[in-house]
Nucleic acid binder design. Sequence first.
RNA 1: UCCCGGGUAGCUCAGCCGGCAGAGCGAGUGGCUGUUAACCACUUUGUCGGGGGUUCGAAUCCCUCCCCGGGAGCCA
Length: 462
Amino acid sequence: MKRTRIKNIFSEGNIGQTITICGWVRSKRESKGVAFIALNDGSTQDTLQLVVPSDSSAFNKLSGCNTGAAIRAAGLLKESLGKGQKYEVEVSDLEIFGEADSEAYPLQKKGHTLEFLREIGHLRPRTNTFGAVFRVRNVLSNAVHEFFQSRGFIWVHTPIITASDCEGAGDLFTVTSLDLEKLPAGNNGDIDFSQDFFGKRAYLTVSGQLEAEFLAMSLGDVYTFGPTFRAENSNTSRHLSEFWMIEPEMAFADINDVMQLAEDFIHSLCGMALEKCEDEIAFFEKFYKNTSINDLRSLAEKPFVRMTYTEAIKVLEKTKEKFEFPVKWGLDLQSEHERYLTDKVFKGPVIVVDYPKGIKAFYMRQNTDGKTVAAMDVLVPKVGEIIGGSQREERLELLEGRMNDMGLPLENIQWYLDLRRYGSAPHAGFGLGFERMVQYITGMSNIRDVIPCPRAPQSIKF
RNA sequence: UCCCGGGUAGCUCAGCCGGCAGAGCGAGUGGCUGUUAACCACUUUGUCGGGGGUUCGAAUCCCUCCCCGGGAGCCA
């Protein structure tokens, strides 16, 4: 079926041409002499105005053209006679693919709350808001690849099913082909996973980092971009059980290199969103007011504030601001502390580096002070932690020592330790939650509104 | 998982000191208009989240479960 995308009509605008467009009706206004249809096909933010004169054969098909109906229209592209739009199509031929009963169709030409739209996840992409979100999401996905590819990073596909359970990144979903009605009993009354599909217990990945490390220690600079699963019972506007994560890993790099990479990366994504999604960003600015073209422009250019954890604690100790949780060296920064730094003190992204080793993962490189590790978090206003990264511990003895101190078993992870035995080198990387990035750029306040099918505890509809 | 707030028409919400279930929007019909989430008039709509209890009588009070939202923790 030949059709012109509405996006292309607006960009090319060949006035006087006969064109065919397909899409879904947003609204219809009828009168005696003429009827107007606002049509959207998902390719762009704006609707195209269709004009149906009463003497056109299309006019008597209008009763089936209610909000939500899928139609094809053909006619002449003209400069609009009315205000509010540049182009319109004078329809000479109209075909209705599928009507949408106006009594039953949940989306009507009125505002709906995001909470309500979450209940109709299969229809919400037809709204202005979700059309915009998913177009921005697409542009950002592509921007991720463009950024890394242009810097010579190699995209690696780390496994979704994994056997490593000691990453400490979160609770895992078990993957099994065992009959859940008849689970084989092991020695101590627990389940005998040696009879399971892989011969041992398997999980959905919580991070591709450990695998990305061995690929970096052979290919140089790599990145992952794929789905990640966490079984934590997290009920917040910033957590999903299934989300997409981006994890670059650089060989021959230290913590400063990875901080710079993180900053360049965010700058680049903001710039790309501005360049390719101006209409969408303008829409978010107008209707939700949590993002703006000007904010993004400065985010795309302004250097991030950088400070050590120790400096951050000093800032937090000095303020008169009252916090619910204590501020003390050695304790992790709470959301309220992070928000104070990003929203009130610096009014922009902040990179905090060199955290106490007691609150960070085993694989992070120990600093010479004996107290801290080369870990960094990028904190952004409203969303909070968007990136967590570190220089990895490349010294075998120190890594083993740390694992022993933390009571982590070494036997299943000898392959990871091998990287420190054979040709070990400094390397560093970070993890970025893609949905949080989409949230940050669109200003959507709930993470469930930036992914088509959000998975969360007790929630797997659609 | 914890702390708050909420669940009443298709949607947003009022009613909650117990006594006939309401408004706006939407939708429908008619009118009018090169219209812009058009406008005007009329019409339409209920398992008051589920279950149990108190009471002559419960949307309203009590218990319980479920679901949703905000915040917190865990994290990206």
